[in-house]
Computed example of a mutant assay.
Amino acid sequence: MKVLKTIDRRNFIKQSGLLMSTALVPISGFSMTSLKKYKMGLQLFTIRDAMERDPLGSLKTVASLGYEDLETYGYDSDQGTYYGFKAAEFKQVLADLQLTTSSGHYSLFTYLNKPLDALKQYVDRCIEGAHAVGQSYITWPWLDPDSRTLEKFRILSEKLNIVGEQVTKAGLGFAYHNHDFEFIDQGGETGYDIILRETDPSLVKLQMDLYWVMHSSKESPAELIAKQPGRYVMWHVKDMDKITRDYTELGNGSIDYTVILPEASRAGLEYYFLEQGGNYAKNSMQSITDSAAYFKKHLQKYL
Protein backbone atom coordinates (compact mmCIF):
# COMPACT_ATOMS: atom_id res chain seq x y z
CA MET A 1 0.00 0.00 0.00
CA LYS A 2 1.46 3.40 -1.09
CA VAL A 3 1.63 6.12 1.48
CA LEU A 4 0.48 9.54 0.22
CA LYS A 5 3.02 12.26 0.79
CA THR A 6 1.72 14.78 3.26
CA ILE A 7 1.54 18.41 2.04
CA ASP A 8 1.82 20.88 4.88
CA ARG A 9 -0.56 23.82 5.07
CA ARG A 10 2.02 26.40 3.99
CA ASN A 11 3.00 24.46 0.84
CA PHE A 12 -0.65 23.76 0.04
CA ILE A 13 -1.51 27.46 0.12
CA LYS A 14 1.58 28.32 -1.90
CA GLN A 15 0.85 25.72 -4.56
CA SER A 16 -2.86 26.59 -4.70
CA GLY A 17 -2.04 30.26 -5.17
CA LEU A 18 0.35 29.42 -7.97
CA LEU A 19 -2.29 27.34 -9.73
CA MET A 20 -4.87 30.08 -9.33
CA SER A 21 -2.59 32.79 -10.68
CA THR A 22 -1.66 30.56 -13.62
CA ALA A 23 -5.34 30.08 -14.42
CA LEU A 24 -5.81 33.83 -14.64
CA VAL A 25 -2.97 34.43 -17.07
CA PRO A 26 -4.24 35.13 -20.62
CA ILE A 27 -3.46 32.21 -22.92
CA SER A 28 -2.80 32.55 -26.65
CA GLY A 29 -4.15 36.08 -26.80
CA PHE A 30 -7.34 35.44 -24.82
CA SER A 31 -8.22 37.36 -21.67
CA MET A 32 -10.80 37.26 -18.94
CA THR A 33 -12.49 40.32 -20.41
CA SER A 34 -14.10 40.52 -23.82
CA LEU A 35 -11.69 41.28 -26.62
CA LYS A 36 -12.06 44.50 -28.59
CA LYS A 37 -12.92 43.60 -32.16
CA TYR A 38 -12.12 46.85 -33.95
CA LYS A 39 -9.66 49.71 -33.90
CA MET A 40 -11.20 53.14 -33.38
CA GLY A 41 -10.96 54.78 -36.79
CA LEU A 42 -11.02 58.32 -38.15
CA GLN A 43 -11.70 59.54 -41.68
CA LEU A 44 -9.02 62.21 -42.08
CA PHE A 45 -11.32 64.35 -44.25
CA THR A 46 -12.77 65.48 -40.91
CA ILE A 47 -9.60 67.44 -40.19
CA ARG A 48 -8.68 68.35 -43.76
CA ASP A 49 -7.85 71.94 -42.78
CA ALA A 50 -5.43 70.79 -40.07
CA MET A 51 -3.90 68.14 -42.35
CA GLU A 52 -3.24 70.81 -44.96
CA ARG A 53 -1.49 73.07 -42.43
CA ASP A 54 0.45 70.50 -40.44
CA PRO A 55 -0.04 66.85 -41.39
CA LEU A 56 2.55 65.41 -39.01
CA GLY A 57 1.43 67.44 -36.02
CA SER A 58 -2.20 66.64 -36.74
CA LEU A 59 -1.47 62.91 -36.92
CA LYS A 60 0.35 63.08 -33.59
CA THR A 61 -2.73 64.65 -32.03
CA VAL A 62 -4.99 62.05 -33.65
CA ALA A 63 -2.92 59.25 -32.11
CA SER A 64 -2.91 60.92 -28.70
CA LEU A 65 -6.73 60.99 -28.72
CA GLY A 66 -6.93 57.22 -29.00
CA TYR A 67 -7.60 56.85 -32.71
CA GLU A 68 -5.82 53.80 -34.08
CA ASP A 69 -6.86 53.41 -37.70
CA LEU A 70 -7.29 55.98 -40.46
CA GLU A 71 -9.11 56.39 -43.74
CA THR A 72 -7.25 58.60 -46.16
CA TYR A 73 -8.42 60.95 -48.90
CA GLY A 74 -6.65 63.05 -51.52
CA TYR A 75 -4.04 60.60 -52.80
CA ASP A 76 -1.82 62.24 -55.43
CA SER A 77 -1.52 59.42 -57.94
CA ASP A 78 0.93 61.33 -60.14
CA GLN A 79 3.39 61.87 -57.30
CA GLY A 80 2.51 58.74 -55.32
CA THR A 81 2.00 60.82 -52.19
CA TYR A 82 -0.37 61.10 -49.24
CA TYR A 83 -0.44 64.57 -47.66
CA GLY A 84 2.94 65.37 -49.20
CA PHE A 85 4.60 62.16 -47.99
CA LYS A 86 5.72 59.46 -50.40
CA ALA A 87 3.59 56.37 -49.75
CA ALA A 88 6.36 54.37 -48.06
CA GLU A 89 7.29 57.39 -45.95
CA PHE A 90 3.66 57.94 -44.95
CA LYS A 91 3.40 54.31 -43.87
CA GLN A 92 6.47 54.77 -41.67
CA VAL A 93 5.05 57.98 -40.16
CA LEU A 94 1.91 56.06 -39.20
CA ALA A 95 3.91 53.14 -37.84
CA ASP A 96 5.98 55.49 -35.66
CA LEU A 97 2.71 56.79 -34.19
CA GLN A 98 1.25 53.28 -33.86
CA LEU A 99 -1.40 54.11 -36.45
CA THR A 100 -2.62 52.13 -39.44
CA THR A 101 -4.71 52.97 -42.49
CA SER A 102 -7.23 50.37 -43.67
CA SER A 103 -9.06 52.27 -46.40
CA GLY A 104 -8.69 55.24 -48.69
CA HIS A 105 -11.15 57.42 -50.56
CA TYR A 106 -9.73 57.73 -54.09
CA SER A 107 -10.85 60.08 -56.87
CA LEU A 108 -12.35 57.32 -58.98
CA PHE A 109 -15.47 59.37 -59.67
CA THR A 110 -13.47 61.76 -61.86
CA TYR A 111 -13.07 58.88 -64.34
CA LEU A 112 -16.71 57.82 -64.54
CA ASN A 113 -17.26 59.56 -67.88
CA LYS A 114 -13.77 58.97 -69.24
CA PRO A 115 -12.58 56.05 -71.37
CA LEU A 116 -12.36 52.75 -69.53
CA ASP A 117 -8.62 52.47 -70.16
CA ALA A 118 -8.03 55.75 -68.35
CA LEU A 119 -10.04 54.51 -65.36
CA LYS A 120 -8.11 51.24 -65.25
CA GLN A 121 -4.77 53.04 -65.41
CA TYR A 122 -5.81 55.26 -62.52
CA VAL A 123 -6.98 52.22 -60.54
CA ASP A 124 -3.55 50.64 -61.04
CA ARG A 125 -1.93 53.72 -59.47
CA CYS A 126 -4.41 53.58 -56.58
CA ILE A 127 -3.61 49.91 -56.04
CA GLU A 128 0.08 50.74 -55.92
CA GLY A 129 -0.52 53.43 -53.30
CA ALA A 130 -2.87 51.30 -51.22
CA HIS A 131 -0.41 48.42 -51.14
CA ALA A 132 2.45 50.74 -50.20
CA VAL A 133 0.65 52.10 -47.13
CA GLY A 134 -0.90 48.79 -46.10
CA GLN A 135 -4.56 49.49 -46.83
CA SER A 136 -7.11 46.71 -47.21
CA TYR A 137 -9.72 48.68 -49.19
CA ILE A 138 -9.94 51.15 -52.04
CA THR A 139 -13.19 53.09 -51.78
CA TRP A 140 -15.19 54.97 -54.45
CA PRO A 141 -16.43 57.98 -52.45
CA TRP A 142 -18.60 60.29 -54.55
CA LEU A 143 -20.48 61.17 -57.74
CA ASP A 144 -20.52 64.57 -59.42
CA PRO A 145 -23.97 66.22 -59.43
CA ASP A 146 -24.34 65.75 -63.20
CA SER A 147 -23.73 62.00 -62.82
CA ARG A 148 -26.67 61.16 -60.57
CA THR A 149 -29.34 60.14 -63.08
CA LEU A 150 -30.61 56.56 -63.17
CA GLU A 151 -28.79 56.01 -66.45
CA LYS A 152 -25.54 57.22 -64.89
CA PHE A 153 -26.08 54.89 -61.93
CA ARG A 154 -26.33 51.99 -64.39
CA ILE A 155 -23.05 53.06 -66.00
CA LEU A 156 -21.57 53.46 -62.52
CA SER A 157 -22.64 49.97 -61.53
CA GLU A 158 -21.01 48.48 -64.62
CA LYS A 159 -17.76 50.29 -63.87
CA LEU A 160 -17.89 49.40 -60.18
CA ASN A 161 -17.91 45.73 -61.19
CA ILE A 162 -14.94 46.27 -63.50
CA VAL A 163 -12.95 48.16 -60.89
CA GLY A 164 -13.95 45.64 -58.24
CA GLU A 165 -12.56 42.80 -60.30
CA GLN A 166 -9.33 44.69 -60.98
CA VAL A 167 -8.84 45.58 -57.30
CA THR A 168 -9.76 42.10 -56.09
CA LYS A 169 -7.23 40.49 -58.43
CA ALA A 170 -4.63 42.78 -56.84
CA GLY A 171 -5.41 41.31 -53.43
CA LEU A 172 -7.40 44.26 -52.07
CA GLY A 173 -11.04 44.93 -51.31
CA PHE A 174 -13.19 47.48 -53.10
CA ALA A 175 -16.17 49.41 -51.72
CA TYR A 176 -18.67 52.12 -52.64
CA HIS A 177 -19.48 54.92 -50.18
CA ASN A 178 -22.96 56.47 -50.11
CA HIS A 179 -24.16 60.01 -49.50
CA ASP A 180 -27.74 61.28 -49.70
CA PHE A 181 -28.24 61.47 -53.46
CA GLU A 182 -28.26 57.68 -53.88
CA PHE A 183 -31.57 57.60 -51.98
CA ILE A 184 -33.44 60.19 -54.06
CA ASP A 185 -36.56 58.65 -55.59
CA GLN A 186 -36.47 58.95 -59.38
CA GLY A 187 -39.78 57.61 -60.63
CA GLY A 188 -40.04 54.79 -58.13
CA GLU A 189 -36.38 53.80 -58.19
CA THR A 190 -33.22 55.10 -56.55
CA GLY A 191 -29.58 55.02 -57.50
CA TYR A 192 -28.90 52.81 -54.51
CA ASP A 193 -31.49 50.31 -55.76
CA ILE A 194 -29.49 50.04 -58.97
CA ILE A 195 -26.15 49.66 -57.17
CA LEU A 196 -27.50 46.93 -54.92
CA ARG A 197 -29.10 45.08 -57.83
CA GLU A 198 -26.50 45.46 -60.57
CA THR A 199 -23.17 45.16 -58.77
CA ASP A 200 -21.54 41.88 -57.80
CA PRO A 201 -21.45 41.56 -53.98
CA SER A 202 -18.26 39.49 -54.21
CA LEU A 203 -16.46 42.32 -56.02
CA VAL A 204 -18.16 45.48 -54.76
CA LYS A 205 -18.57 45.87 -51.01
CA LEU A 206 -20.38 48.80 -49.38
CA GLN A 207 -19.24 51.48 -46.99
CA MET A 208 -22.36 52.66 -45.22
CA ASP A 209 -22.38 56.30 -44.18
CA LEU A 210 -24.77 55.94 -41.26
CA TYR A 211 -25.45 59.67 -41.05
CA TRP A 212 -26.63 59.85 -44.65
CA VAL A 213 -28.74 56.72 -44.32
CA MET A 214 -30.48 58.21 -41.29
CA HIS A 215 -30.74 61.58 -43.02
CA SER A 216 -32.08 60.54 -46.43
CA SER A 217 -32.97 56.87 -46.79
CA LYS A 218 -36.50 55.59 -46.29
CA GLU A 219 -34.92 52.45 -44.84
CA SER A 220 -32.97 52.19 -41.60
CA PRO A 221 -29.42 50.82 -41.48
CA ALA A 222 -30.81 47.56 -40.08
CA GLU A 223 -33.29 47.24 -42.97
CA LEU A 224 -30.58 47.84 -45.57
CA ILE A 225 -28.27 45.35 -43.87
CA ALA A 226 -31.06 42.75 -43.78
CA LYS A 227 -31.31 42.92 -47.57
CA GLN A 228 -27.64 42.10 -48.13
CA PRO A 229 -26.06 40.94 -44.86
CA GLY A 230 -22.30 40.67 -44.82
CA ARG A 231 -21.79 43.28 -47.53
CA TYR A 232 -21.47 46.45 -45.42
CA VAL A 233 -17.82 45.95 -44.52
CA MET A 234 -17.16 49.57 -43.46
CA TRP A 235 -19.15 52.27 -41.68
CA HIS A 236 -18.87 56.03 -41.26
CA VAL A 237 -20.07 57.03 -37.81
CA LYS A 238 -21.20 60.62 -37.31
CA ASP A 239 -24.08 62.45 -35.68
CA MET A 240 -26.91 64.68 -36.96
CA ASP A 241 -27.89 68.01 -35.42
CA LYS A 242 -31.30 67.76 -33.79
CA ILE A 243 -32.58 70.97 -35.41
CA THR A 244 -30.64 71.69 -38.61
CA ARG A 245 -29.90 68.01 -39.43
CA ASP A 246 -26.37 69.09 -40.33
CA TYR A 247 -23.26 67.30 -39.07
CA THR A 248 -22.41 67.57 -35.40
CA GLU A 249 -20.09 66.01 -32.84
CA LEU A 250 -21.01 62.55 -31.57
CA GLY A 251 -23.37 62.81 -28.62
CA ASN A 252 -24.72 66.21 -29.62
CA GLY A 253 -27.16 64.93 -32.21
CA SER A 254 -30.19 62.75 -32.81
CA ILE A 255 -28.79 59.41 -34.03
CA ASP A 256 -29.17 56.59 -31.52
CA TYR A 257 -26.06 54.51 -32.12
CA THR A 258 -26.90 52.11 -29.30
CA VAL A 259 -29.47 50.66 -31.73
CA ILE A 260 -27.28 50.75 -34.84
CA LEU A 261 -23.88 49.53 -33.65
CA PRO A 262 -25.09 46.08 -32.50
CA GLU A 263 -25.79 45.35 -36.20
CA ALA A 264 -22.02 45.13 -36.81
CA SER A 265 -21.85 41.35 -37.01
CA ARG A 266 -24.78 40.96 -39.39
CA ALA A 267 -23.44 43.81 -41.52
CA GLY A 268 -20.10 42.07 -41.97
CA LEU A 269 -18.31 45.07 -40.46
CA GLU A 270 -14.53 45.06 -40.71
CA TYR A 271 -13.65 48.72 -40.13
CA TYR A 272 -15.41 51.86 -38.94
CA PHE A 273 -14.35 55.49 -39.09
CA LEU A 274 -15.64 58.43 -37.08
CA GLU A 275 -16.22 61.41 -39.33
CA GLN A 276 -17.61 64.93 -39.31
CA GLY A 277 -17.75 66.73 -42.63
CA GLY A 278 -18.14 70.22 -41.16
CA ASN A 279 -20.33 72.34 -38.89
CA TYR A 280 -17.79 72.12 -36.08
CA ALA A 281 -18.80 73.55 -32.71
CA LYS A 282 -15.35 75.16 -32.42
CA ASN A 283 -12.87 73.68 -34.90
CA SER A 284 -12.13 70.32 -36.52
CA MET A 285 -9.49 69.22 -34.03
CA GLN A 286 -11.73 69.99 -31.06
CA SER A 287 -14.54 68.09 -32.75
CA ILE A 288 -12.50 64.90 -33.15
CA THR A 289 -11.45 65.32 -29.52
CA ASP A 290 -15.03 65.57 -28.30
CA SER A 291 -16.31 62.79 -30.56
CA ALA A 292 -13.54 60.42 -29.50
CA ALA A 293 -14.26 61.04 -25.82
CA TYR A 294 -17.98 60.45 -26.26
CA PHE A 295 -17.47 57.37 -28.41
CA LYS A 296 -15.04 55.73 -25.99
CA LYS A 297 -17.31 56.40 -23.01
CA HIS A 298 -20.68 55.49 -24.48
CA LEU A 299 -20.40 53.55 -27.75
CA GLN A 300 -17.13 51.68 -28.16
CA LYS A 301 -18.41 48.86 -25.95
CA TYR A 302 -20.72 47.81 -28.78
CA LEU A 303 -17.76 47.21 -31.08
Rank of each mutant, 00 (worst) to 15 (best):
M1S: 15
K2E: 15
K2N: 14
K2C: 07
Q15M: 13
G17E: 12
L18T: 13
M20K: 10
T22S: 14
L24C: 11
P26S: 12
S28Q: 13
S34W: 01
Y38I: 01
G41N: 02
G41W: 05
Q43W: 08
L44I: 03
F45M: 03
R48H: 12
D49V: 01
M51V: 01
R53F: 01
R53W: 01
D54I: 06
G57C: 05
S58Y: 05
S64K: 13
Y67S: 11
D69M: 10
T72R: 08
S77F: 11
D78W: 03
D78P: 02
G80C: 08
G80R: 10
T81I: 06
T81M: 03
Y82P: 00
F85I: 08
F85A: 07
Q92Y: 03
V93D: 10
T100F: 05
T101H: 09
S103F: 06
G104F: 12
Y106S: 08
S107D: 11
N113D: 15
K114Y: 00
P115Q: 10
P115K: 11
L116K: 14
L116H: 06
L119V: 12
K120Y: 11
Y122Q: 14
Y122V: 11
V123D: 10
E128R: 13
G129W: 08
T139M: 13
W140Y: 14
D144Q: 04
P145F: 02
D146W: 04
D146E: 11
S147F: 00
E151C: 00
K152P: 00
F153G: 00
S157A: 15
E158G: 00
K159Y: 01
N161D: 04
V167T: 10
T168G: 12
K169T: 10
G171D: 09
L172W: 12
H179A: 02
D185R: 06
D185M: 06
D185P: 07
D185L: 03
E189R: 11
T190W: 03
G191I: 06
G191C: 05
D193V: 07
D193N: 11
I195D: 04
I195S: 04
E198N: 07
T199D: 04
D200F: 02
P201L: 09
S202C: 02
S202E: 15
V204Q: 07
D209N: 05
D209P: 02
D209W: 06
L210S: 06
W212P: 00
M214F: 03
M214V: 07
S217W: 03
P221Q: 07
I225P: 11
A226P: 12
A226E: 15
Y232R: 07
W235E: 10
H236M: 06
K238N: 12
K242V: 10
I243Y: 07
T244W: 01
R245I: 04
R245L: 09
Y247P: 01
Y247F: 15
Y247G: 02
T248S: 05
T248V: 13
L250E: 04
L250V: 04
G253F: 03
I255K: 04
T258Q: 12
V259H: 07
V259T: 13
L261F: 14
L261R: 10
L261Y: 09
A264R: 13
G268Q: 11
Y271W: 12
Y271P: 02
L274Q: 10
E275S: 03
E275L: 05
G277C: 07
Q286Y: 05
S287R: 01
D290L: 02
A292T: 00
A292D: 00
A293R: 06
L299M: 05
